[in-house]
Amino acid sequence: MSECLKFSYLVEGENFDGAGAASEDTKARLKRLGVSKEVIRKVAISMYEAEINMVIHANGGKADVMICPDKIKVVMKDTGKGIENIEQAMQEGFSTASEQIRSLGFGAGMGLPNMKKYSDSLDIQSQVGVGTVVTMEYNI
C-alpha cells in the first residue's frame, strides 16, 4: 500500500444549502474503505464543523483530504478574514456570528471546541486579512 489517497473539494462561501457536501462525501469514502465507525464519526463531525466555518466566516475555501493506511489528514484552507485571537476562538461559546447567521442555527461557538474534541490533532494557522488553515489528523 504505497501512497495515500488524496481528494480535494471546493467549498462555496455563503452557500448554506450545499454546506457539508465535502464532509458528507469524505464520510462515504471512509465507509467504502471499511474504516471503523468510531473514526468515521470523528472525521464527519469535526470536518463538518470546519467546513461550515469556511462557509460562514471565510467566504468558502478548499478542503484537502488525505487517507493513508494509518491515518487521515484533513486540511481546510481559506483566504477569508482570519481569526484574531485563536485562543479566544477556541473557547466554548465564543462566536462572532451575526444575528442573521444565528437565525440559521449556527453561531453557538461550539465548532472549534468540537473540532478539538473529535480529532487526534488540531492545528490552526491564521492571519487576519490573509486567511486560515485548519489541519486535523486522525489515527485509523
Binding site: 474503505l33 471499511g34 493506511p69
Partner: peptide, 16 residues
Amino acid sequence: YYKLDEDFAQAFVKMR
C-alpha cells in the same frame, strides 16, 4: 453497500 473490499489494502486499490 459501502465496503469496496473486506480487505483494507484491497479496498484502497479499488478506491484508487
